[in-house]
Amino acid sequence: MDFSIIINEYQFYLDGLWTTTWLVTLSLLLGLLIAIPVGIFQNSENRLIRFPIWVYMYFFRGSPLLVQLFIIYYGAAQFDWLRESWMWYYFQEAWFCALLAFTLNTGAYTAEIVRGVIATMPEGELEAAKAYGMSKWQTLRRITLPNSLRRALPAYSNEIIFMIHGSAIAGIVTIVDITGAARVVNARYYAPFEAYFAAALLYMCLTFTVIFAFKQWEKRYQIEK
């Protein structure tokens, strides 16, 4: 076993760490932007609104992230109209396909979290909002969302961790993320244990940073209970 390889190739890993970080962070942010309205409308009484949301959520929660990534990365090229449109500029890039797959995937999972916390909003607090003359929109903005999103924190921190780990498949479509870096190093030195062990350590660093940040965040809201 020779860990000096890792030290010599640390630049690869740092680049990989950076790629994983921005790819996951951006996916999570965009996913959250999708998830909040989708989660809200999933509670809608209108079937015409609920049905497309249902299709979206069940597709992305019902199939593996890797398959979704393949559909976008390899499948997109099959459509001439796409190849001829301005969008092809993005779809031919592996990073864009990964970003799109990750965003849609985490969007669906997070929407389910949002739907759940909104559905379990304390009835009495909503009634109080009504009784004090708030409109539906005001109630959503001032009461339902701030209350629900706090309750979503524990479940959402899990989703972030799943996303960090799930992003390892980006390496398969040529992206040099943490796993991608490990693949390159392994290919060069044939030292799979060292190469992937170093990757595991980096993923753990990211994971524990997230866990720690959310602990602090939840602690801040704990006093409210």
Binding site: P122, E125, A128, A129, Y132, G133, S135
Partner: peptide
């Protein structure tokens, strides 16, 4: 008119059995 109802509600305050304060 929901607007009228909201306006009138805002002039009538309610105190509930289970308080219903906004917990956040």
């Amino acid at each position: 008119s929901l607007k009228q109802v909201e306006r009138i509600r805002s002039r009538l305050a309610m105190v509930f059995q289970s308080f219903n304060l906004w917990s956040h």
